[in-house]
């Protein structure tokens, strides 16, 4: 590797890096757990709670079917939320960090 001079450990423990990493993890893992939970609720509920899932909500459409559709909306919403959060918070922080590393490399 050409970049052996870079002190990776120092960057990894730099407050800015720690801040970015922790903010990202909290946000990403939170969203993932939320999405995954709702998916498993659908999978288990569809078989275990037929009364709720078969309740008719809109005309012939029942709760289970609408829950399936909701999963798509949820996935899209998570995608949009994540994109916005990244563009506003994570990406500028990342750019700062990369600039910092480049500066250190040049020294």
């Amino acid at each position: 590797m050409v970049d052996k001079e870079i002190d990776w450990a120092a960057i990894a423990s730099h407050p800015k890096f720690v801040e970015l990493h922790q903010a990202k993890m909290r946000f990403l893992v939170g969203l993932w757990v939320f999405g995954a939970t709702s998916y498993f609720l659908l999978l288990v509920g569809a078989v275990s709670f037929p009364d709720l899932f078969n309740a008719r909500i809109l005309g012939r459409l029942n709760f289970g079917y609408l829950f399936c559709l909701f999963q798509f909306v949820l996935a899209w919403a998570i995608a949009i939320i994540y994109t916005r959060k990244s563009n506003r918070e994570f990406d500028p922080l990342t750019t700062e960090l990369v600039e910092m590393i480049v500066k250190e490399e040049c020294q």
Partner: peptide, 20 residues
């Protein structure tokens, strides 16, 4: 709609791809 649950599996698998 049981077939639709497969589809939900596909779209939900993208959460892992996207976020992680």
């Amino acid at each position: 709609p049981d077939g639709f649950m497969y589809s939900v599996g596909i779209i939900i698998s993208f959460l892992t791809i996207l976020l992680i």
